[in-house]
Design a protein around this nucleic acid. Structure first.
Lengths: 150, 150
DNA sequence: AAAAAAAACCACTAAAAACCACTTTTTCCC
DNA sequence: GGGAAAAAGTGGTTTTTAGTGGTTTTTTTT
């Protein structure tokens, strides 16, 4: 199973194409033959999520099965399913980010690609660094997190 | 079974015709030979729902069978059944949205078609983006959702 | 029967996707 | 450490396909 780590600065060209860094490209080739699904992140951080297709196919049914008379569940479904874009890397190892996703995550030229284990996150560089600077206003931790010893 | 994903910007012409994006058109052709049912969404979001006919025929009896001494159930029935419009794509892959549904969902020229798994949602572009910007005022999550790891 | 509206058909324009070539950076070997 | 070769990243061009708009024919209504 894929295990994405580290962060990479990348540039998007005028057509919305972005070259996946070679290291990541190799991992993607192995995990899914370059077949990925790009979608919106559901929480308040406006970034995109990059799933290898097999990973996405684990997540998708869970999201579709949520009880959608519930408002929070509907929102998650609309964001995750409603923004999902399956795609393949082109001959030069690039992907074309659809305009709707580009504007959702406020992507301009300079981007950051962040490894997150089974998936990757794609941020506007500006927003990534702004987020890093945010005070981690002490939110409630789930018990699994309380028990961690880093 | 059909599995609609992603969002598409589309324009409705002066006659109320709207061209289904080619990707979606292919999925519809496969799922139902282009035979769909268009109806109103029942929750507070004023959008339309697009069902492939087989999918609709699974849903319809369930809605009809609801115990309609209940006010919420009656409302659901009136909206879903009372607005349902079966139709087929025309030769150019377009559908003609009935005027009543057009006004229900406040559809003007610019629309968004949102994949939601077994169905699609059709929004006024303006309303879709307004909804995206809404704060996800922390509604109660169903337990299935609490347990998700995206 | 005529006129108007709706539906089906056809043609043109624009945008997206695939292809190709060049430049820059990195790595390996001398 | 320098040079050469290979790989990676970037940009442009061409071809195909999708979207848009107009026209004609058929049906319905007055």
């Amino acid at each position: 199973m894929s295990n994405f780590l580290g962060s990479h600065a990348i540039n998007m060209d005028a057509k919305g194409r972005l070259a996946i860094p070679a290291r990541v490209r190799e991992e993607l080739a192995q995990a899914c033959g370059g077949r990925i699904v790009l979608t919106a992140n559901a929480d308040e951080e406006r970034c995109l999520l990059v799933y290898p297709e097999p990973e996405w196919e684990i997540l998708r049914p869970k999201v579709e099965a949520l009880p959608n008379m519930n408002k929070a569940a509907r929102r998650l479904q609309r964001l995750i399913l409603g923004n999902a874009a399956p795609m393949e890397l082109d001959g030069a190892g690039r992907i074309l980010v659809p305009p709707t996703l580009r504007s959702y995550a406020h992507l301009e030229k300079k981007l950051m690609l962040i490894g997150q284990g089974k998936k990757l996150e794609l941020w506007s560089e500006e927003r990534w660094f702004a987020w890093l600077d945010e005070s981690s206003d002490d939110d409630e931790m789930p018990p699994e997190m309380e028990a961690l010893s880093l």
